[in-house]
Every structure is written in structure tokens, then in C-alpha cells.
Design a protein around this nucleic acid. Sequence first.
DNA 1: AAACAAAACTAACGAGTGTTAGGTAGGCTA
DNA 2: TAGCCTACCTAACACTCGTTAGTTTTGTTT
Lengths: 196, 196
Amino acid sequence: MAKIQTKKNSSKKEIIIEKAARLFREKGFGAASMRDIAETVGVEAASLYNHIQSKSEILQAICFKVANEFISHLEEVERSGDSLLKKMETIIRFHIRMMLEQYEYVYISDHEWRHLAEPYLSNFLNQRRSYRKRLGDLVEEGIAKNEMKNIEPYVAVLTILSAISGIESWQRSRKSTSAETLEANMVKYLIEGLKK
Amino acid sequence: MAKIQTKKNSSKKEIIIEKAARLFREKGFGAASMRDIAETVGVEAASLYNHIQSKSEILQAICFKVANEFISHLEEVERSGDSLLKKMETIIRFHIRMMLEQYEYVYISDHEWRHLAEPYLSNFLNQRRSYRKRLGDLVEEGIAKNEMKNIEPYVAVLTILSAISGIESWQRSRKSTSAETLEANMVKYLIEGLKK
DNA sequence: AAACAAAACTAACGAGTGTTAGGTAGGCTA
DNA sequence: TAGCCTACCTAACACTCGTTAGTTTTGTTT
């Protein structure tokens, strides 16, 4: 019998994913059980299966939602007529804001993707590799056009993306430094370090 | 009955920790079972308990070994008479080399510490916070002495440490870029971005 | 050869895992 | 009102988990 996707169904599914995301981030994918998720949703574990097909499906939904957002933003930036340094800054700011506004989802996509089942795992890694390659091409062009320092593009991209992903550890203690200060200073460091 | 620590005993314990580290890194602490570890050691799971006290103990040993190495290196650098920029460069290079040479251990200390049990968890986080604070003080002094750009010290430290920890994702595909290129270019990016 | 301790083994424990089967209450439509 | 579908429930299955108990093998020392 085919599942009919009603409004109620899809919104409950979204609630489940949202609650699960919180738990996956706090305890890790493996340590967060279906019974844990069910409890925060306010339902028995078995009832979750009226809305989702498996625990894996939740992880897949989260990882690919995030990946798609980054890819489509990149395509938008690539089409723009900005300078290469400006393009990189736009991308860096987008990453930082995603990390601030969609913390749970981005964190999981960064740290729990290894628990994806095949073929989603390979798929995810291919998208990731391709995304980084395209960022590297932007840096390479920026160097060629004398906008940027001669830093090996792969290493520059790795440095930038890793630095941003470390905002995760700021999220746990948001007290002393504001989000604005964080964004402004990290952009300053990463962009001025890249600028010729 | 007190356990007697013979030479054989301690070396077998080290083997167990080494093999476990590999598995913790590959599958995560939660997903790597004692039976997995036992298999790679070439023994039954129950036999592991002749050498270690618990699965947690393995994680503790790894995390604190790494933490202690970083702390004692920092103390050495603090005592040196180098400029502040040079001090930071020394620390950055040390972090990168640790990431290259003790990949498994450093990775686990970076990513699996959340599975530590109390009171080790709090202890670990305190050491981490104190370490970052001391790095921040170096940056703050570097700014005051006009050696460095005025980047919020906490953000600068976060950026540096996160960037380096991202070398993890390079380790998985070591083909195109050599370790030397990686170190040289990352140091260049992080130091020149910091230099006034 | 006898004695001893270290380190391996088998077997099992209690708890927790994702998931399925089968049943029931409540609301919408014919 | 009768039928139907959705979303919940309880109960259970077939594992796997870390760990312990009790026993046997192995290797060294007297």
C-alpha cells in the first residue's frame, strides 16, 4: 500500500527530524536511540515508523539538505560578476551564517556523515569533493589574476572550511564573544590572509 | 588482589590502545565494539580485560596522552625568548606535525572526547579551555606589541586550531598534496594572515 | 617435576538496539 | 450510520553491547 503524503504527515516528519537532529548533535548518531527520539517527540518509538522509514533516513535527510543548500549557493556565487576575492568572502560569510543559524543540521552534516549507509555515503562524499574542487578553482583563478596570495588552492580551501566548522566549539559557550564579533573577525583573518 | 604491571602486560596494553585507536577513528567510539577491538588484537573480547579495566579507560588514555603533549609543548614555548609571532608559528607547526604523525590519537582527542565519562570529561574540557586561553594570551600580547593584526584573540585561536584539525580530511586522501606542501602552505596562510 | 601467575578461553548476564506485527481509538468521507 | 484511513499503542523479535565468572592453557621459576 502506497504511503500518502498528507500535510500532517510531512509536518510531523519534519518535527521528528528536527528533534532527532538535536539528539544526534548532542550524543552522536550511534548513541541517540529511536526511543530517545520518540521521547522528545512525545510518542512511542514504534510510532515514529508511521512517518519515517528508518533511523538512517533521518540522517540522510539532514546531510543532503545541508549539502544541497551549499551547492546551490555556490552556483549562485559562480554566476555573479564579483571579483574572486569578493566571491570567496561571500561564500565564507554564507558558511559562517549557516553555522550560526542552522547549527544542528550543519554540525551533523560535518561530523556524522560517516554513519550514512551506502550508496548515500559515496554520494555524499562525491558531492563534498566536487564542492571543494570548485572552491579550489576559485582560489586558483584568484591567484592567477593576482588578487590572492600564492597559497596552494587545496590547502587554502581546507583551511577556510575547517576554520569555519570549528565555530561548533564556540556554539557551546556563546557567552564572551558575540556572533557578530565572531563573523567579523574570522572573515578578517581568512580574507586578509588570502588577499595579495 | 593488586595487578602487577610487568613489561609484557604494559606492552600488550599499548597494543590494545593502538588497535582501538584505529577503530575509534574509523567507526567512532560508540560504533567500535570490544569484540571488534579483540578481533584486530587477535583475542577474545573477554581477554582484553586482563589488560584494561574498561572501554572508557582506553578513550581516557588516548585523550589525556594527547592533551598532556600539547600542554607541555606550550609550556616549553612560553619559556622561550622568541617573538610572539614566532611562538605562534612554533605552536602551529607542532599542531600540524602532531596531526600528521599521531593522526589516530589526535583525531580521537579532537572528535571523541564527548564520550568520556565524568569526572574525566570535565577535567578534559578544563584543560582544553585553559590551553586555548593561554594561546589567546599570546595573541593578545602580540597585538599589544604591534606584531599582529588586531584580530579578536579568541577568534584567532579558534580559527587556527580548527583549521589544523581539518587536516583530518586531508589524511583520508593523501594523494595529490604532500605533507610538506600542506604544512608550508597552511603555516603561510595562518601566519601571514596574523602578521601586521 | 611441581608450583605459580599471567593470560587466554567459553559461557552467560542484563540491558539496550532498530524494527515489525497486530490491534485500537478518533476523525473524515460516502 | 458505515466504512476507511491515519496515527497511535503494546508486545515482541532477533540482535548486539560491555562486562563478569569460572576454567583452562601457557610459560616461567624454583
